[in-house]
Computed example of a mutant assay.
Amino acid sequence: MKLEKDFFNRDARVVAEELLGKVLVSNYNGKILKGKIVETEAYIGEIDKASHAYGGKRTKRTEPLYGEPYTAYVYFIYGMYYCFNIITNKKDIPEGVLIRAIEPIEGINIMSNLRFGKDYSDLNKNQIKVLSNGPGKLCIAMNISKDDNYEDMNKSNKIYVENNKIDNFQIIKTKRIGIDYAEEAVDFLWRYYIKDNKYISKK
């Protein structure tokens, strides 16, 4: 069952943790791709120097952060990769959750071809491990790009999140990755992942 908008109309830290185990869905040319969300990061513009919207910064790039909850925010990094975020909390409160890693569960052969240009059965052990264990990697595998920026995921049939059966897993809370510039925010324990899942990007 598709998650409703109200699920995302909460503090990013709460949503980031509760998204673990849920299923990210992408419709690629009529084929459904699914991955269990196993790693997330929360960003809260008002107090977070790692956020693109810190200090009320509002530009064309950051405008999706100020949108309705359950809006997609996709941005480009290093001139190479996309990062996919889901906006949380109320409109005009810049908060969001970065989806850092997923565990492929449906449409895996398509994901493999999108990511490596070959079938899943032809991947080596390392390629299987790195299929979707990072924000840029999962965007390639799920065909998420700048075209999905601003997508209203509450209404969308292209990209959205489904609930999942309850799994028994332990959640690890730790520091976020790649934000060395963010002063005190470096130490915020706002990264969440499923303990021992082989698809997380970093322990």
Results as ranks from 00 to 15, higher is better:
V161H: 10
D180P: 02
N27Y: 05
N143W: 09
N168H: 15
I108C: 04
F7T: 05
A101K: 06
R58W: 09
N29T: 12
L3Y: 09
L131R: 11
V14S: 08
D148Y: 06
S26Q: 02
Y28Q: 08
D187G: 07
E41N: 05
E162C: 12
Y192Q: 12
L65R: 03
K91H: 05
R191T: 02
Y78S: 06
A185S: 06
D167Q: 10
E183Q: 12
A16T: 06
T71W: 01
M111N: 03
I144P: 00
I77P: 04
E41H: 10
I77M: 05
S145Y: 08
I177A: 03
K155W: 05
G136L: 06
I172K: 13
I47M: 12
K129R: 13
I102A: 00
Y73D: 01
M142V: 15
S112W: 09
N163Y: 13
P104C: 04
T62L: 05
K203L: 05
D122M: 14
V97G: 03
Y120E: 10
K158F: 08
I177V: 15
Y199C: 09
Y70A: 04
A182K: 05
K31C: 15
K60P: 08
D187C: 07
E46V: 13
S26Y: 01
L20I: 09
K118W: 10
N89M: 10
L20E: 04
Y193I: 12
P69D: 04
K125Y: 11
N157A: 14
I171G: 11
R61V: 07
I99Y: 02
N133P: 13
Q170I: 08
N197Y: 15
